[in-house]
Design a protein around this nucleic acid. Sequence first.
DNA 1: TATGAATGAGGATTCATTCAT
DNA 2: CATGAATGAATCCTCATTCAT
Lengths: 224, 224, 224, 224
Amino acid sequence: MGTGLTESTSRLRADARRNREQIIAAAREMFLEQGTNASLEEIARRAGVGIATLYRRFPERHTLVQQVALENMALVGAELDRATAEHQDAWNALAQVIRRLVDLRVGAFMPVLALDLEEDMRSEGGVLKTRRDQLLARMEQLVRTAQQEGQLRQAITPIDIMLGIIKLSRPLPVIGAELNARLIEQQLELFLGSLHAVALDASEPLRRQRLTLDELDRYLETAE
Amino acid sequence: MGTGLTESTSRLRADARRNREQIIAAAREMFLEQGTNASLEEIARRAGVGIATLYRRFPERHTLVQQVALENMALVGAELDRATAEHQDAWNALAQVIRRLVDLRVGAFMPVLALDLEEDMRSEGGVLKTRRDQLLARMEQLVRTAQQEGQLRQAITPIDIMLGIIKLSRPLPVIGAELNARLIEQQLELFLGSLHAVALDASEPLRRQRLTLDELDRYLETAE
Amino acid sequence: MGTGLTESTSRLRADARRNREQIIAAAREMFLEQGTNASLEEIARRAGVGIATLYRRFPERHTLVQQVALENMALVGAELDRATAEHQDAWNALAQVIRRLVDLRVGAFMPVLALDLEEDMRSEGGVLKTRRDQLLARMEQLVRTAQQEGQLRQAITPIDIMLGIIKLSRPLPVIGAELNARLIEQQLELFLGSLHAVALDASEPLRRQRLTLDELDRYLETAE
Amino acid sequence: MGTGLTESTSRLRADARRNREQIIAAAREMFLEQGTNASLEEIARRAGVGIATLYRRFPERHTLVQQVALENMALVGAELDRATAEHQDAWNALAQVIRRLVDLRVGAFMPVLALDLEEDMRSEGGVLKTRRDQLLARMEQLVRTAQQEGQLRQAITPIDIMLGIIKLSRPLPVIGAELNARLIEQQLELFLGSLHAVALDASEPLRRQRLTLDELDRYLETAE
DNA sequence: TATGAATGAGGATTCATTCAT
DNA sequence: CATGAATGAATCCTCATTCAT
C-alpha cells in the first residue's frame, strides 16, 4: 500500500515531481531500447531536463534502474491480485502474470538477474529486494498449486520462470523498441507452451499472430 | 563450396594467419563475456597484437563479429551433416542442431539478428548472408519434415527457432561466462520442450540438471 | 570600535543569527580540512541549512572566507591586548601573538595572502583590510620595540612574520586536520627560533614535543 | 644510475618522447601555479597535445605527479654529490641541498607529505619511494655530521627539514608562479637561520633581497 | 526569510579510429 | 606487415550559482 520510496516522492514540489516522472518515462524507453547502460545524458535530454537534475534525483545509475523496476513491480502486484481474482485455476492466473511481467519488461531492469542481491541489499533497506521477494513468494505459491492441479509441468521451478521472463524481456540491441516488442510477443506464447503440461496436439495453433520473414525484413529496412 | 572470405585467408603469411586466429579466439571470448560491444583494444591485447593489426584484418567491428559467426557456422554446417546422418527422424536431427547452435552461441554474434540483412548484403558479396541462408534452408527442410512426422508442433516457424537460439545465446551482462553457460543450459531443454509436439506427461522430467536457488546464489557471490 | 559587518549582524533575527554562526563554524572546519575551495554545498549541509541560505548570507565564497577571517582577527585583537598586558618585553608579547595567529589558522583564510588587497578594498568598505592593517600596525610596533630590545633579529620585517604565519597555517591536503595540527605545532617553534636574536646554544632544545617518524607513519596509516 | 623508469623512456619514438617532455614541462608549471590538482586538460592544452595522449603516457594523475617529482629528485641527487664535493663541512653541504630542493619545489609534488608511503609503494616497484629514501638517508647522514660539527642545532630532525621544505615549496594559490617564487626566496633564508646553531648577532643581515610592501603590492596589481 | 530545484559548465576518463614509423 | 602514437568525441559526474516556491 504505497509505502517506502513512493511516499517520499509525494512530498516533492509539483514541478519536481513532473520532472521525476519524465525522467523515469524517458529512462524506461531508453533502457528498453539500449539496455540499462544507456547514456544518462541522453535520458536527461529526452526528459527535457538538465543532466544535473537527473543526478539530483538519482545519484547513481543503479538508483534509476531500481525506480523503474519498482514502479513496474507495483503494477505487477496489482495484476497478481487481479489475476487470482479473475481466474479459478492457478495455471491461468500464473500465465496471466507472466504475460504482464513480460509486457512491462520487468526482466529488462534486472541486468544481473532478478536475483542480483548484492546491490539491492545495500540500497535503502533493500526495498527492491523486498518487493521482488513478495512477488516471487506469490509466484511460488501459484507454481505449486498449478502443479497440483496437473496443469504445470512438474519439472518447472520458479527460477525457470524468472529466467525465461528475463531472457524474453531483454531487448536486442540496435533494432529499436517496436521490432523488439514484436519479437517478444512472438516468443512469449512459445515459452508459455513449454511450461504447460497438457497434451499438445501437434497441430494446435499458438495464441499469437504469426511473424513472417517478409514482415521482419520490412521492420529492419525502416529501422535502418 | 569454400568460396568467399575463407579463401583469401589461406593466402596469408604464416604469422599473419596465426595473428588472425588469435584475434578471433580472443574476440569470441570477449564477445561472450561482454557482448559484441566489447573493447577492441582489449581484444587486441588478449590476442597479443597491436590494435592497428586488428584493424588491418578487420576494418570494422562488424567484420570481426561476422568472422566469428562465420567460423561458427562452418562448424554448424558440419554438425548438420552429422545430425542428419546419425538420426533417422527429422525431429531428433533438428534438436541436435539447435543444441549445437546454442552451444556455440551463434546467436550471440548476431546482435542485429541472424536476420539482419542490411549490413550483410553490402559486405563482401554477402558471404554471411549466403551461409546463413544455406543453414536456414536446411533447417526449414528439417522443420517441414519433422512436422510431417508429427513430432514438431505445426505452429512453429524457422523464425521461432532462430529467435529462440538468439535469445538463449545472448549472455547476461556482468555475471561472467560461467554462470551464463549454466543458465543457458538450464533454459535450453525448456525451449526444446516448447517445440516438441508429443503429449507431455505433467510429471515428465526435463533432460537437464536442475539449478537450485542456492547454487545460483553461490555463483553470484563469487562473481562479485 | 565594533564598526562594519559585525554590527549589521546584531540586527538579525535570532534564528538567522544562529544560522549564520553555524555556517561560519562549519566553514572554518571545512576550510581547515580541505582548503578554502571546499564545497559550499557540503558546508551548508554540515551547518544544517539549505544552500540558498548560505548564499543569502554570503553571496560569494570570498565573503564567507572573509567573515571567518574577521572573526578570528577579532579574537587576535583581544589576544594582542592581553599579550602586551601580560608581558613586559615586546619579544615575548610578539611571540605569543604569533602563536595565537597560527593556532587560529588565520593565515589559512587568506589564500591570496593576508596581503591580497584587491578584493578586500572593493568589498564593503574594506573592513577586512582595515582590521588587518590595525593588526599589522600593532605588530610593526612590537617588531620595532623587540628589535630595540635586541631580542628580535634586525633583518626581520613584518612581511616575514605574516608570510611565516600564512605558510605555517595552510593545511596540507588529504591528511586531515589532526595531523595537520601536529605538523604545524612541530614547525612553529622552529619558526620562532628563526626570529629570535639570542645566541643559541647548539644543544638547546626546542619548546615542543618531538614528532617521530613512527608517529608520523601511524597518522598516515589511519588517515588512509 | 639512470635505471628504472627513465630507461623505458629512451625507447620511445622521437615524437613521442618530445610530447612526453612537453607534458612534463607543462605539468610542472601548472602544479606550481595551482597545486597538484590542476586540470589535466589544461596541462594537455599547454603541452600542445590531445588529452588522450596525456592519458596514454600517464594513466593516472598520480603517475604524472610522480614523474615530475622523479625528474626533480634526479637533479637533486646530482646536487648532493656536488654539494658534498664542494663543501668540507656538513652544514654548508646540507644548506646547499636544502636550497636546491626548495628551488626545484620538490616538496610541491608530495601533497600527502614527502612521506606519503601508500601510493608510492604500490606503483611500479616504489621507484619514487626508493629514490626519496636514498635522498633521505644521505640527508640524515649530513644532519648527524653537522650536529657533531656543532653547526646544526641538536633539536633538529630530518622530519623538520622535510616539512620545512614542503611548506616552503607549496605555492600559494591564485597569485602566480612569479610572486610565489619571490615569497619562497624570502622565507628560505629565514628557515635556514632557524636550523643553524651559531650564535646570531641580532643585527646580522639575512642573505637575501628584502621584499618591501610596495613591491608586494606591485606584484598583486599586475597579477590581477 | 528559508528552502530545495534546476541548470550549465568543466573536469576526468575511456574508446574507436586514423597516422606515422 | 606490424606496431604504437595521437586524436577527438562521448560519457560520467560534481559544483557553483541562480530561481521559484
